[in-house]
Computed example of a mutant assay.
Amino acid sequence: MTVPYVITEPCIGVKDKSCVAVCPVDCIKEADDQLYIDPSECIDCGLCEPECPVDAIFMEDEVPEQWKKFIQINADYAKK
Protein backbone atom coordinates (compact mmCIF):
# COMPACT_ATOMS: atom_id res chain seq x y z
CA MET A 1 0.00 0.00 0.00
CA THR A 2 1.37 3.39 -0.94
CA VAL A 3 1.52 5.89 1.89
CA PRO A 4 1.29 9.36 0.28
CA TYR A 5 2.24 11.24 3.45
CA VAL A 6 3.99 9.92 6.54
CA ILE A 7 4.01 11.28 10.08
CA THR A 8 7.41 10.66 11.64
CA GLU A 9 9.19 10.69 15.01
CA PRO A 10 8.93 14.42 15.87
CA CYS A 11 5.17 13.89 16.39
CA ILE A 12 5.69 11.37 19.18
CA GLY A 13 4.46 12.88 22.41
CA VAL A 14 3.40 16.13 20.71
CA LYS A 15 0.23 15.38 18.73
CA ASP A 16 -0.42 19.07 18.04
CA LYS A 17 -3.38 18.36 15.71
CA SER A 18 -2.93 21.46 13.54
CA CYS A 19 -2.70 18.99 10.67
CA VAL A 20 -6.02 17.41 11.65
CA ALA A 21 -7.75 20.80 11.53
CA VAL A 22 -6.85 21.35 7.85
CA CYS A 23 -7.40 17.80 6.57
CA PRO A 24 -10.46 17.83 4.27
CA VAL A 25 -11.06 14.07 4.59
CA ASP A 26 -10.20 13.29 8.23
CA CYS A 27 -7.50 10.79 7.31
CA ILE A 28 -5.25 11.69 10.25
CA LYS A 29 -5.87 9.39 13.19
CA GLU A 30 -4.70 9.60 16.78
CA ALA A 31 -2.95 6.72 18.52
CA ASP A 32 -1.42 6.54 21.97
CA ASP A 33 1.99 7.87 20.96
CA GLN A 34 1.48 9.95 17.81
CA LEU A 35 -0.81 10.80 14.90
CA TYR A 36 -0.97 8.64 11.77
CA ILE A 37 -2.21 9.16 8.23
CA ASP A 38 -4.53 6.48 6.89
CA PRO A 39 -3.35 5.97 3.28
CA SER A 40 -6.69 4.51 2.23
CA GLU A 41 -8.39 7.81 3.13
CA CYS A 42 -5.65 10.34 2.23
CA ILE A 43 -6.33 12.24 -1.00
CA ASP A 44 -2.71 13.40 -1.27
CA CYS A 45 -3.66 17.08 -1.01
CA GLY A 46 -0.61 18.06 1.09
CA LEU A 47 -2.46 20.53 3.30
CA CYS A 48 -1.22 18.83 6.46
CA GLU A 49 2.50 19.09 5.74
CA PRO A 50 3.00 22.86 6.17
CA GLU A 51 0.71 22.93 9.23
CA CYS A 52 2.85 20.61 11.34
CA PRO A 53 4.65 22.73 13.95
CA VAL A 54 7.34 20.08 14.52
CA ASP A 55 7.97 19.26 10.83
CA ALA A 56 6.99 15.61 11.25
CA ILE A 57 4.99 15.16 8.02
CA PHE A 58 6.72 14.21 4.76
CA MET A 59 5.79 12.85 1.38
CA GLU A 60 6.75 9.18 1.38
CA ASP A 61 9.67 9.68 -1.01
CA GLU A 62 10.99 12.62 1.04
CA VAL A 63 11.09 11.01 4.48
CA PRO A 64 14.57 11.58 5.97
CA GLU A 65 16.69 8.45 6.18
CA GLN A 66 16.61 8.32 10.00
CA TRP A 67 12.79 8.15 9.95
CA LYS A 68 12.22 5.76 7.02
CA LYS A 69 10.87 3.12 9.43
CA PHE A 70 7.83 5.38 9.96
CA ILE A 71 6.64 4.62 6.42
CA GLN A 72 5.93 1.06 7.52
CA ILE A 73 4.74 2.14 10.98
CA ASN A 74 2.10 4.41 9.38
CA ALA A 75 1.04 1.68 6.95
CA ASP A 76 0.79 -0.90 9.75
CA TYR A 77 -1.27 1.44 11.91
CA ALA A 78 -3.73 1.96 9.07
CA LYS A 79 -4.29 -1.80 8.82
CA LYS A 80 -5.56 -1.98 12.42
Results as ranks from 00 to 15, higher is better:
M1W: 03
M1T: 09
M1L: 13
M1E: 11
T2A: 14
T2L: 14
V3T: 11
Y5H: 13
Y5E: 00
Y5S: 00
I7W: 06
E9A: 15
E9K: 14
P10Q: 05
P10V: 02
C11Q: 03
C11G: 04
C11N: 12
C11P: 00
I12K: 13
G13I: 02
G13V: 06
G13T: 01
K15M: 13
D16H: 13
D16I: 05
D16E: 14
K17A: 13
C19D: 04
A21M: 09
A21I: 06
V22D: 05
P24Q: 08
P24A: 08
P24L: 08
P24D: 06
V25R: 08
D26N: 15
C27T: 11
C27W: 08
C27D: 04
I28K: 08
E30P: 00
D32N: 12
D32R: 10
D33V: 03
D33W: 11
Q34H: 14
Q34P: 00
L35I: 00
L35W: 02
L35N: 10
I37G: 02
D38F: 03
D38W: 06
D38T: 01
D38Y: 03
P39M: 08
E41F: 05
C42W: 04
D44W: 06
G46S: 06
G46K: 07
G46P: 01
L47Y: 12
L47I: 01
E49W: 01
E49G: 00
E49A: 14
E51S: 12
E51R: 13
E51I: 03
E51A: 12
E51H: 10
P53S: 05
P53R: 07
D55G: 12
D55F: 12
I57Y: 09
F58M: 03
M59G: 09
E60C: 08
E60G: 01
E60T: 14
E62A: 11
E62M: 11
E62V: 02
E62K: 15
V63Q: 09
V63W: 08
P64I: 05
P64W: 09
Q66V: 10
W67A: 06
K68T: 12
K68E: 14
K69M: 13
K69G: 02
F70G: 01
F70K: 02
I71P: 01
I71W: 06
I73G: 01
I73R: 12
A75K: 14
A75G: 01
D76Q: 12
D76E: 15
Y77F: 15
Y77C: 01
Y77V: 01
A78I: 01
A78P: 00
A78M: 02
K80L: 13
